[in-house]
Nucleic acid binder design. Structure first.
Length: 105
DNA sequence: TCCATGACGAACC
DNA sequence: CGGTTCGCCATGG
């Protein structure tokens, strides 16, 4: 049991169509300041994972994908497929809306 | 063991 | 308002 599995378990609870920030996932994981670790864990995910990693975005609602094993716009495609709208700005892709998934429910 | 590095975040210039 | 610095936790050299 590694921390990856713990984080993936948390991410897996995010419902289809919802989005959560790294900070939220970290908090739900038990490490309020471990947002960076969550990002690191996401980057370690294999291309064929079942974990809904695409629903995790940063607090600015920007898609900060840096995983070379995935297509550049893989996350955007997944989110659009779930009904989310993606807006392209000068510095990257953003998820429209202001809603965040609440883990405390 | 110390140092550097991150799909981050919040506090500071 | 934007770029920089520091804190965060875990890993790897």
């Amino acid at each position: 049991m590694s921390i990856f599995d713990e984080i993936y378990a948390v991410v897996s609870t995010i419902p289809k169509g919802s989005v959560a920030s790294y900070g939220q996932v970290a908090a739900a994981w038990g490490k309020p300041r471990g947002a960076q670790v969550v990002g690191w864990a996401m980057g370690a995910l294999p291309p064929d994972t079942n974990v809904p990693w695409a629903r995790v975005i940063n607090k600015q609602r920007r898609l900060s994908i840096v995983n070379p094993r995935l297509a550049p716009q893989e996350q955007a495609m997944r989110l659009v497929a779930e009904g989310r709208e993606i807006v392209e700005k000068s510095d990257g892709l953003y998820v429209s809306g202001e809603d965040w998934y609440s883990f405390s429910e």
